[in-house]
Every structure is written in C-alpha cells, then in structure tokens.
Write a protein that binds this DNA or RNA. Structure first.
Lengths: 208, 208
DNA sequence: ATTCTTATTGATCATATGATCTGTAAAAGA
DNA sequence: TCTTTTACAGATCATATGATCAATAAGAAT
C-alpha cells in the first residue's frame, strides 16, 4: 500500500510539544492525502510519520477532523486578499496586472499538494471547494471582467465564459502536471504570457 | 453512505442471461464509481443494482477486474479514429476543422461519467489515463499543430504549449461542470467557438 | 537523583469490506 | 408435469479499518 519512504522502526520514542506534533501530523497528512487521496488509511499515514496510529486520535477526534485540518492548512492564504485591489488599479496597464496576477497565482496553485487536494475535495463535493470557487469568481474573475470591459475598445466584449476560458487554460497547465503527471516545461511563464496576450489581442486591448 | 435511489426489497428474484446481467452491472458500476469514486464499496453498488453483493463476484473475479471493465466501457470510442484524417484534410478551412472537432469532442467528453471517471483514474495514476493522453497528443494535438503551422502566415508560431492551452481552456468547461459542479451555460458552443477564434486570430489565420 | 506530568505506545474492540461457498429457485427442456 | 441446469441469494470468513483505553516512559520540575 504505502510503499513510500519507510521509517526506521528502531527510532526511539520522541516526545514533542503538542503544537509541534500536531503541526507535524498536519504537514504529513497534507502530503499523504495529496498523494493517495482522502480515503488514505490512518495506519499508512502514521507509519509514514513514524508514529503510532493511535496517536493520530490523540490530536484529532476522528479522521474527518484531521481532513478538516488538512483543508484548513491547504486552503489558507491561497487567494491573497490584496489581489482584488491590485487588479482594479488602473494606473497600471491591464496587461501588466493580468501578467502579475497569473504569475503570482500560478506559483501559488501549481503545487503538487494543493492541486491534488483541491481535485480530491472537489470530486468529493467538499463545501470548501464551492466556497473557494465562488470566492475566486466574485473577488477575481468578476472584477477582472470589469477591467477588461473598461479597457476594451471593441464592440465585441468578452463575457464570463470567455474569462473562465482564459483562466481554465492556465489552470489546466497545473492539472496536466500534477493530476495527470504529464511532462511539462518547468517554466510556465511563456505559455501563460502567450495565453494572456492572445486574450487581450482578441479584444483589442493595447499590450504594453 | 449510498443514499441514492433505494431498491424495492420486495422485488422478486429475476434471472437474467449472463451477458445481459454483466452489462447491467458494468453500466451500474460506471454510474456508481463516477459518483462516489473508485473506492466505492461493492455492497453499495450491489444495493443500487438491486442484486446481492456476492453476485458481483460471480461476474467479476474481484473488484479490480470490475473496475477494469468500467474503464473498458468508458474509455472505448472516446477518440474517434477518423479525426486524425479529418483534421488534416486541407480541402476544408482550418477553422471549420477545429470547430467540427471540438464540437464533436466536447459532446463526447462533457459527460458526467466520463469526466469523473477520467479524473478519478487520473488521480489514481491509472495506466489507461497516460495512454489516453499520449494518444490524444500524438493523434490529435500534434497533427493539429502541423495544420496550424501550415495555415499560419505569421512569424510567431504556436508551440505545443499554446495548443495545450487552447485544449485545456475548452476541457476546463467540462471540469467546472462535472467535477466542481458549478453552474454552466447549457450550450458550450459559443465559448468554444470564441476560444478557437481567439486562438486563430493570434496566429493570423483567416477565419472563414 | 527522584518525582511528576503527560506524550506516546500497544493491545484491543466493533464494524466494514472484499471474497467464498453452499443451498435455492427460476426458467428451459423433456 | 417432471427433470435439469444454473443464475442467484444468504450465510460466512479473513482481514482491514477507525477508534478507544490502560500502561509506559520521556523529559521537565524539584
């Protein structure tokens, strides 16, 4: 089952301060559940952490609350609250704002743990997923659409679906890399930049 | 657990011809595993089918081979073998070929069962996934890149990453709809058409 | 060194789960 | 109607799994 790194069975029992141990468990759980899915077994997780399975239940009431802690750890700070303002700052060219956002955002989300736990929890129908996506829609994409409308000089304006298409095309890079484990260029910058430029060009927005 | 449609427990035992019963099980398993994931329990599946759990093992050696049958059922005919030829048929405008392909392809893959089982199996690292994506890359996207290069009149040519971006942006519609269960327009045609046109415009390919 | 606190373990429980096997009854053939 | 075949159900097994709890020992306090 869990043939990832085995732990020295001879390692002497070590007592950690509770906060420290708890954090160690959460960190390990994030990596573990990201790899095998949320149905991963507590015994496998414990073995990987080099602790007993029963210890897990000393720090978490049950498996569900452990997974909640994993969610908290992973979802936290994933959408910086300053972006809505930065995206609406018209003293900066729209292209620069878009590039800055997706450069920042992609380094935040193109991460093995986040990508996979987000997908696992999405498939499981986790409420946190819906909230995250609604937040993304309201705080990022919707303001962005306004900015694009304001900057566009064309009669043909993009709608929300067009913007989701831009967003999805970029996010799909991370899906290819971490969900499907396909070989990808190490630097996603050029592909993202091209995608943004194609989008802006289509709506006749000056590109520098 | 399995609070989906319950089955009348009074229903009289019915004998089906083996091929028919087997197909019924596979169909039910596709729907079931698509909903709850590949770790869905055989007892839940059996209850949903209105048969006993033991009967499943009369038709499949073990759960793994049942899942293999699910894969076979779901992956079959998902990439029509005629598309490589049709995509390379230069008697038809490139835009028309692209539109026709993605119109066809999207109706094939924007389907609850396929989308979710593909994602579940992708996360599980199923070999079939890798094969599918390699097939897609070699038989569809690579030829498509050639066609675009041939039709493009610009110095700036798209590369494989750009094409994956087009593809991903389209596929992401299905992900939003079936994985994240977000509200989506019922007709994806316009969004797909716009995405393709933006792409072609960027490479100065005549659009009709 | 000794005592004390408590983080950690090991044994254990109840239930869930994949899988097996024997008996039963539905449907076909005589 | 009787016989035969075999699809199917029900009982059961072995193991896995989440969870509990009393006993232990690491490390701080004295």
């Amino acid at each position: 089952m869990d043939n990832a790194e085995t732990v020295d069975p001879k390692a002497k029992r070590r007592r950690l301060p509770p906060v420290e141990r708890r954090q160690q468990i959460v960190d390990g759980a994030v990596a573990f559940f990201a790899e095998v899915g949320l149905e991963g077994k507590t015994r496998d997780l414990a073995r990987r952490l080099g602790i007993t399975q029963s210890l897990l239940f000393n720090y978490f009431e049950n498996k569900e609350s452990l997974i909640e802690a994993v969610y908290d750890q992973v979802y936290i700070d994933r959408l910086s609250p300053e972006w809505p303002h930065r995206l609406a700052d018209r003293s900066v060219p729209l292209r620069s704002r878009l590039l800055a956002f997706y450069k920042d955002y992609s380094t935040l989300i193109f991460e093995y743990e986040w990508m996979r736990i987000f997908m696992f929890s999405g498939l499981a129908g986790a409420e946190l997923n819906r909230r995250y996506l609604e937040h993304l829609n309201k705080m990022i994409l919707h303001p962005l659409l306004n900015e694009i409308h304001a900057a566009s000089s064309k009669s043909m304006m993009p709608d929300m679906e067009d913007l989701w298409n831009l967003h999805g095309g970029i996010v799909y890079i991370g899906i290819r890399q971490h969900i499907y484990r396909m070989p990808c260029p190490e630097d996603h910058g050029p592909a993202i930049e091209n995608a943004i430029d194609r989008f802006l060009q289509a709506f006749a927005i000056e590109q520098d």
